[in-house]
Design a protein around this nucleic acid. Structure first.
Lengths: 235, 235
DNA sequence: CGTCAAATTGAAAATTATCAACGAGAGTGG
DNA sequence: CCACTCTCGTTGATAATTTTCAATTTGACG
């Protein structure tokens, strides 16, 4: 949250209480399973994770990728049973906390409540972009969009990531995020590569023509263009 | 919000301040256009509206349908420029209010802040269901899902809506919501009808086999199964 | 060296889009 | 009251995109 506004010491203390405990999650392990009874929320401290739903024909839709600093499992604010599965994409560390802890923060720190609504809306915008991409753009555009999105989000964590990065997703995972089959993802990656937009070498992707890639993907960065002047004063 | 918890008089007064002004919006008129500079939020008082994005090849993706009581334009909490367009599906009445008004409520009424997060998460769940449907289910399933969703949401407003209701969407709008063409929507509606799941007569849809329809659609009702026991006390 | 997940490739099939046309019904101006 | 126009729904034929199935290859790792 410190990226958006300057956090006061009192707010910092309150947020730190959410991260008192730690739990390790191995790559592939499940933190929360859909339809399980749940109550805990999490902050991702290290690693990357994803939230997904499993349809009853066995296919999977990945809803969102999570990076360090993200809150996860916010839906258990609302539902008795989790609607989403949360899985580790790489070995990760999470900080579990109780709903009541969040409740106390909302009461004591209105500005943090507002900031959480802000994050909720950023996430909403990201989800709606994905929705529009899956509903209305070609397979190639969707794959390109995932590449750009992953690069941008990784770069938020590590400022000196440039045009080259470890993707950290299998082609099957890209397919589950974009609503395509792994086979078709493979063909689209190859096509994007043949057009000279990217280069690939075992998991590392390099953007050769970022402008062309953005145009192919119809991409909008939802972490830009923010206006937070309306936030209440810190308490 | 009164559907979820009992609102105290003080909370009621605070919320009523959001609805002091009224504005009429004719069917087809645009309340907020994507990429316009915006600052206002809205509560929908009467009618139905939709939020959508327009891609630059001219195609449209409908993100969400709005019904009376819904807050709209929450993204202007965050962005200088609106990412979504909000349009009236029928003649409607909205109540515009300022971001600062919301800010004051968050500070003065923590339980309302929490309830707004709850609504945000319900909306998120609805969006992710749509995402999974568009990404991973057949055209027929997506159309069936829209039918069920519209019926359920209309029934929340009017308890004695049963198996028959006015859909209030053109086939083109159904297509833009499901990521299909209007032509294909037509064929899917016909097919669902021929299978005896629904009947249609100029805009009115009647469910003949609700169980079959739910199975065809892979449907989950996100307004059920809530657990709000963690909410802070009313102030 | 053997094994296993992941990537790659080709061919055929299924789904969905595109194009083009027509019909029904609502509103509108003469 | 009668063209006239417009939107919406409907239908058929064809094309494009994406999936499915079935191998095969590659690379990491014990």
């Amino acid at each position: 949250m410190g990226d958006l506004v300057t956090i006061t010491p009192a707010e910092h203390t309150a947020l730190a209480r959410l991260e008192e405990r730690e739990r390790k999650v191995r790559r592939g392990a499940t933190l929360q399973r859909a339809n399980d009874r749940v109550g805990e929320l999490f902050i991702l401290r290290k690693g990357t994770m994803m939230s997904s739903v499993l349809l009853d024909d066995g296919s999977r839709q990945i809803l969102r990728f999570q990076f360090p600093g993200d809150m996860m499992g916010l839906t258990s604010l609302v539902y008795r049973e989790a609607p989403e599965t949360i899985t580790a994409l790489s070995d990760s560390v999470v900080c579990p906390f109780e709903r009541s802890a969040l409740s106390e923060i909302l009461s004591a720190h209105p500005r943090l409540a507002a900031l959480m609504m802000v994050y909720g809306q950023i996430e909403r915008a990201a989800l709606t972009d994905r929705l529009a991409a899956i509903g209305r753009t070609s397979a190639k555009a969707r794959v390109a969009a995932i590449l750009i999105d992953m690069r941008n989000r990784l770069r938020m964590l590590d400022k000196h990531i440039g045009n080259s990065f470890m993707l950290g997703l299998t082609q099957e995972e890209i397919g589950d995020a974009t609503g395509l089959t792994a086979v078709h993802v493979n063909r689209m990656l190859r096509q994007i590569e043949e057009e000279g937009l990217i280069a690939r070498e075992n998991g590392r992707v390099t953007f050769l023509d970022e402008g062309g890639l953005m145009r192919a993907a119809n991409y909008a960065d939802r972490y830009e263009g923010l206006d937070l002047s309306w936030l209440p004063a810190a308490r």
